[in-house]
Simulated assay, not measured.
Amino acid sequence: MTTKRVLITGAAGFLGSHLCDRFIKEGYHVIGMDNLLTGNIKNIEHLFPLKNFEYYHHDVTKFVHIAGDLDYILHFASPASPIDYLKMPIQTLKVSSLGTHNLLGLAKDKKARILVASTSEVYGDPAVHPQPEEYWGNVNPIGPRGVYDEAKRFMESMTMAYHNFHGVDTRIIRIFNTYGPRMRLDDGRALPAFMSQALTGQDLTLFGDGSQTRSFCYVDDLVEGIYRLLLSDYHLPVNIGNPVEITLLQFAQEIVELTGTNQKIVHRPLPTDDPKQRKPDITKAKTILGWEPKVDRKEGLKITYEYFKQALGK
């Protein structure tokens, strides 16, 4: 039987590297691609000796060529944290527009199935709670977060256009807050910020009064959802995330308790267009994919904390 070949863009990133591991484990030939704008080569170095892994240092906003057959493409290249896309707004827009266009063209040429990584940010600051896939969102296109939110919305539109007009076999995942080993310490999002602050003796910075909510999904659960969606027959968007909701104040308190530190929680002004609520409706994932998260937040945070301790040399 011929080994199936999969291209994973953003391969050296947090999610991309875990996807490389999963597809290697499942017996695929994995082609990892990254320009290391926000990725870290250390995340995939352990795969370099394997004969069924190859790596291309390439920017997907430029023409993408892969020799030979290709069965699947997973498009995970993009800055994904506010600290990154506020610093690199043009690159963020380009990777989800030009990059997606290039990869959809490649999928069409190779007759490959392509899964694109969208995000809960397409819902903006939602007026509907929890957020089902049918909700169209509440997004400010010219606000600071618009470069990410609208880039992902455009990505979804282009993916559906290629599906409907060219008959490309497409999948769309909407990813909610995810955490786990290989998150960047300087990511800027709540979990790495709280953990690195706690471990370095700094006060924990909480934006606003902390009443805004998030729902945190452990990375292994997310990867399982992605894998199931790719191999499913469903081409419309699917939410993958953990529906257990928590306020950011409660979350900061959990981190203080977990790390055994005695730092204070200090409040800063809420960033523009910061979502007040975030919780996925995962009915579709349950019914279509037979998927729901398995890893309890307490267990996932312990594993992540050990990773951060090691990363910081604690």
Rank of each mutant, 00 (worst) to 15 (best):
L249W: 14
G188H: 03
A252V: 12
G124P: 10
Y135C: 13
A161H: 01
S215P: 12
E257R: 06
T178F: 02
F216I: 05
S196N: 15
V147P: 02
L258V: 07
Y307A: 04
V60G: 10
A107K: 01
S78L: 10
M195W: 01
T9L: 13
S196D: 13
I114W: 01
P275K: 03
Q212Y: 04
K110S: 03
T178M: 01
E292S: 08
H75L: 01
P82L: 00
E306M: 04
V223Y: 05
I303F: 14
G225M: 12
W136D: 15
Y28V: 01
L249R: 05
I173W: 00
Q253F: 03
G188W: 03
L258S: 11
R278S: 15
Q250W: 01
V238K: 09
Q253I: 08
E254F: 11
K284N: 06
L103H: 12
T205L: 15
D59P: 01
E121F: 10
H65R: 13
R5E: 12
V266E: 00
I255H: 06
L15C: 13
S96I: 04
I172W: 05
D273H: 08
L248F: 06
T2F: 14
E245F: 06
H57V: 15
W291F: 02
R228C: 03
V147L: 08
D169Q: 04
Y56C: 14
E292L: 05
K62Q: 08
D169T: 00
Q212S: 09
A161N: 02
G105R: 07
I226F: 14
R145F: 06
Q212V: 13
Q310C: 09
Y85P: 12
G99H: 07
A198M: 07
A285C: 12
D169P: 09
I172P: 04
I31N: 02
Q253C: 11
L230A: 05
N43V: 07
L86N: 00
